[in-house]
């Protein structure tokens, strides 16, 4: 698949935003590390919402006809893309109610209920983002439950690292935030490793034989029938050398999971905590962006069987 920059930015930014917001609610409810001040909570919540909004706006840049984008909310019952938009739109007012109830000292029940609902909707929205890809039977590398699991784990991992940065800047006790980040980043790393292991094996996937129905002999493509590239080759023809993919996978683990892990130790030891927390958050986000790029670049659509691939 052709890796579109707008979609990569959208999924990484909105994932981190949704993750940050729900973890902020947890940090607020349990007063982790002494608890954030009122203004700090509101600032954190607004940063999370900004990440989500900029992500959603960026996602409209890959539309060829954005004037019809408002119609994308209409097929909620069947389309995961529509569901994602609808859930994100329900998230927004709930998140504002939660932040307002913090700001204006609303009764605790309102604050807790709106915060909980916001956190649940954040989870559902990131799950829907993953399901956009996981529901496609045409791309073997995507059609697995590991995809929404990866989207959730990576979104929450980068969100937890951003929250840790906030805790360090606010001068809270960082211990609970370090523990939370370490746990979520470790889960994200393990899930991603399982995913990379899983997609190595083609398994039961379509071949050039089932694509043409000529199943009794070897089949090979003689001619694609077009002079130059088509929409199909431009959208689905992207190919990535195995070596390069291996290098990027290594980088994902070193920068996206290893570096934040090391920086967590630095924050724990109290050595230039702010710098370490910033490096951890940036590493997490850059790692997630590389992971997302690879997620698209490695996906092989079955239409490639009609353009020369023997199996997908």
């Amino acid at each position: 698949m052709h890796p579109a920059f707008s979609v990569i930015f959208f999924t990484v930014a909105s994932g981190a935003g949704f993750g940050l917001f729900s973890l902020l609610f947890i940090a607020d409810t349990f007063k982790l590390g002494g608890g954030f001040e009122r203004d700090q909570l509101v600032a954190g919540g607004l940063i999370a919402m900004a990440l989500v909004v900029f992500g959603l706006l960026s996602s409209t840049f890959h539309l060829a006809n954005p004037k019809n984008a408002w119609r994308a909310f209409s097929r909620f019952r069947t389309s995961w893309l529509s569901r994602e938009g609808v859930f994100a739109m329900i998230f927004m007012p709930l998140a504002l109610i939660y932040l307002a109830s913090i700001m204006f000292d609303a009764p605790l029940w309102l604050r807790e209920i709106s915060g909980f609902l916001t956190a649940v909707l954040a989870w559902i929205t990131v799950f829907s983002t993953g399901m956009i890809y996981a529901c496609l039977k045409t791309i073997r590398q995507w059609n697995t439950p590991l995809v929404p699991a990866n989207y959730l784990a990576l979104g929450y991992a980068s969100g937890s690292l951003l929250l840790l940065l906030g805790a360090v800047i606010s001068g809270l006790d960082t211990m609970p935030y370090i523990a939370m980040s370490a746990l979520i980043v470790a889960i994200a790393a393990v899930l991603k490793a399982i995913y990379y292991f899983w997609i190595r094996d083609p398994g039961l996937s379509p071949t050039i034989n089932t694509a043409t129905g000529l199943t009794r002999a070897k089949v090979k493509l003689l001619d694609t029938g077009h002079t130059h590239g088509t929409f199909l080759t431009q959208e689905f023809g992207y190919r990535l050398a195995r070596k390069k993919a291996g290098l990027i996978k290594t980088l994902v683990f070193v920068i996206g999971f290893g570096l934040p892990g090391l920086m967590l130790i630095a924050v724990f030891n109290g050595e230039s905590g702010q710098f370490a927390a910033l490096a951890a958050a940036l590493g997490g986000l850059i790692g997630a962006a590389m992971e997302r790029w690879l997620f698209f670049a490695e996906a092989r659509h079955v239409v490639n069987l009609y353009h020369g691939a023997q199996r997908c």
Partner: peptide
């Protein structure tokens, strides 16, 4: 009504849809 998101072309295994 189409907004040109390409999602349907991703879902089609036969390459029938072109933007």
């Amino acid at each position: 009504k189409c907004m040109g998101c390409n999602y349907c072309s991703w879902a089609c295994p036969y390459g029938a849809r072109e933007l």
